[in-house]
């Protein structure tokens, strides 16, 4: 590896910016366009998907069967993105997603992965002590609930469909979506109406 790569990162980016623009490999306009597209994805977008799945059984079934096509149907751009798989939590089974090798994350839906998801502590502990790990978020599951850790190692990206909280019968999709947070769709936390 060339020692030039050890140059300060901001300086390296500035140098590449000019070189790649001059060569037509990555122009400022192309970079700005991708950045804008990336910023449209967010946990709020994921929360809307979850709320729709809670209120529309046919949508829920399609989402679980083919996440990519189903969210595309909501207008979320998935072209070029890895396929999306959706993991349904039940009273008996709770999913926790991690990428132990890097930071694979359902970015097309949820946006940039959060800082903690990329950390060594999270990546190491999720597969070995999932209950101890989610306790950092104050999450405690019933003793009767099993945990399924999902190590996202390859070509899919995984999003958790959390359990709909009790006491939300008749709520609108908007009100339900407001209950759903980033961590709920990774499995470190669970939504609550309380």
């Amino acid at each position: 590896m060339s020692t030039l790569v050890e140059t300060d990162a901001e300086t390296l980016l500035a140098a590449l910016r000019g070189l790649l623009a001059a060569k037509g490999l990555a122009t400022p306009a192309e970079i700005a366009e991708r950045l804008a597209i990336t910023e449209k994805a967010s946990p709020a977008q994921g929360a809307r998907i979850v709320a729709k799945a809670w209120t529309d059984p046919a949508f829920r079934a399609r989402l679980l069967a083919d996440g990519t096509a189903t969210v595309e149907g909501l207008g979320i751009p998935m072209r070029g993105a890895p396929p999306l798989g959706v993991l349904e939590n039940t009273p008996d089974l709770h999913h926790l997603v991690v990428c132990t090798l890097c930071s694979c994350y359902p970015r097309a839906v949820l946006g940039y992965p959060p800082f903690w998801y990329k950390s060594a502590g999270y990546r190491a502990r999720a597969v070995r002590d999932p209950r101890g790990l989610i306790a950092e978020w104050g999450t405690k599951l019933p003793d009767t609930t099993r945990i399924r850790v999902v190590d996202s190692t390859a070509d899919y990206r995984w999003m958790v469909l959390p359990l709909r909280p009790a006491g939300t019968d008749g709520w609108s999709e908007d009100a339900l979506a407001a209950l759903v947070h980033e961590g709920d769709m990774v499995g470190v936390s669970v939504p609550s109406a309380g």
């Binding site: 132990t100 800082f115 903690w116 060594a120 990546r123 070995r128 002590d129």
Partner: peptide, 20 residues
């Protein structure tokens, strides 16, 4: 070294859950 799943060295490392 990037293959971190279950590595005991990080077993007691707290996770910074604050938004960045």
């Amino acid at each position: 070294h990037h293959d971190m799943g279950g590595v005991p060295r990080y077993a007691c490392e707290p996770v910074d859950i604050a938004p960045h």
